[in-house]
Amino acid sequence: MYRIYGHETVLNIFKSVISQNKISNAYLLVGEKGLGKRFMAEYFAIMVNCKKETEKPCFKCSSCLKLMDKNHPDVFFIEPEENSIKVDTIRYITNEINIRPYEANKKIFIIDQADKMTVSAQNAFLKTLEEPPLYGLFILIASQQQKLLPTIISRCNIVRFGKESKNTIKNYLICEQNIPEKEAEVLAHIADGNFDQANKLTDNEYLNFRKETIQEIEKILTIRGFEVIEEFEFFDKNKDNIEEVLKIMLYYVRDLLIYKVTKDASFIKNIDFLNKIQQMESQLTINKLNNIINKIEQFNSQINSNVNYQLAVENLLLDMAGGL
């Protein structure tokens, strides 16, 4: 069963287009990674092809059951291969969309991480979007809308996803992950409205990784001079997971900056490290913390380009350790 936590605005949009029978041929679900866009895309697909006349979805008709089992002949799930969606995949979609649905009202293509389409793939997809058959429905999911061509965006109805409330995440953790209420309260605060982050925080392996990463940045911030280069070992060990390392570090430094400026613990994301944050912020200036945040963000934008990884990490470490 698809139980929904939050998403009231998005659900109301879907209910409205279904009840008025005004389903467009393309929707773009936009929001940061981990907010439940894929889940709601699937839910919308179930609603669209549900055979019941009212109160869609019923979760009982043949269409609902097949979609819940991911084996509906008229619903296709498209995902990146090797971190991109290539033009061959779009050609496959183009061929399939020209074949009428076998049993449903709509032939639906859910394109996850649509912002990872190559430029050539986007141009090829644009032709399909311009003149789709009436029975075709595209549901695109993207966390970085700016990576899609403006011409593609203009042909989609945009549905925006925001962070959920702390209470929503707390209820999700209690009901779906069987987390005790007090622990769920803390994890929901750290998750900051993000379902994926909440799920990660229930995994002991991830919790150990997060703790190790925070301890590493605390260590870096206490080192002065070229000795900091020795910390490359940590980044080398975690090279395959570097984006998550940088995200954890970025949030932690932002917590240091926010607490230094406000002295208000309610604004702190890493609330379980509050005592350490309170100890460390006095040792760092606002200027230095701002500089570190900028350098981490700059490094994060470099890692997907063809840069020398070790050199880039060493430059980051020196920037983090030096200056005021």
Rank of each mutant, 00 (worst) to 15 (best):
R3M: 10
F59C: 03
L284H: 10
P150F: 07
F39R: 13
L274C: 09
A265G: 08
D112P: 00
C58I: 02
F273I: 04
S143L: 08
L256F: 05
Y206A: 12
F267H: 08
S62I: 12
I220N: 11
Y2T: 09
Q146E: 14
L11T: 14
N157Y: 13
H72D: 02
Q197D: 09
L274A: 09
L173Y: 04
L311Q: 14
E212G: 11
N25G: 12
K239G: 03
V17A: 00
F234S: 09
D115R: 11
S282I: 09
T54P: 01
Y259T: 08
A265H: 11
P101A: 02
S266H: 12
K51E: 14
N105M: 05
A321T: 10
S120K: 06
D264Y: 11
K116E: 12
E82N: 14
F195M: 04
I229K: 01
D236C: 06
K211M: 07
S266Y: 12
R254I: 07
Q298M: 08
Y252Q: 05
Q20N: 15
L140W: 10
Q113N: 15
E8C: 03
K60M: 09
H7K: 14
F161M: 00
K295P: 03
Q146P: 02
E244L: 13
N199D: 15
R100K: 15
I293P: 02
P133M: 00
N315K: 15
C61Q: 03
I99N: 04
L137F: 00
N287D: 12
K56N: 01
E233M: 07
N308E: 01
L316C: 10
I110M: 03
V228S: 13
R155I: 13
I277K: 04
I174Y: 03
S63R: 02
E96I: 08
V307A: 04
T118F: 04
E231A: 01
I139R: 05
R254C: 08
I158H: 06
H72L: 00
K163T: 09
C61T: 01
E8Q: 12
K295E: 14
E314P: 03
F161Y: 01
T213K: 05
K60V: 12
N315Y: 14
E205K: 15
I303W: 05
K22R: 15
F138T: 08
G225F: 10
I141Q: 02
L134Q: 14
K288L: 13
Y309H: 03
L11H: 05
D192R: 14
G31A: 05
I248Q: 02
N300M: 10
N199V: 13
Y102E: 06
N315G: 11
L149W: 04
K147M: 06
L250C: 11
K33I: 10
N306E: 11
L284Q: 03
K166A: 12
L221F: 13
I214Q: 07
Y172H: 06
L316S: 03
R224T: 14
S282D: 11
L316G: 06
N123P: 07
P132Y: 02
K163E: 06
I174K: 02
N306T: 14
N178M: 11
I78F: 05
E164M: 09
L173I: 08
I223G: 04
Q278T: 03
E42I: 10
M320K: 01
T168R: 01
G136I: 13
Y259Q: 09
L221C: 13
R3E: 15
A41L: 03
D272M: 04
E32T: 12
F125W: 07
Y43G: 00
L311I: 15
L316R: 07
N238P: 04
G162K: 01
P132D: 01
T222W: 04
S266F: 08
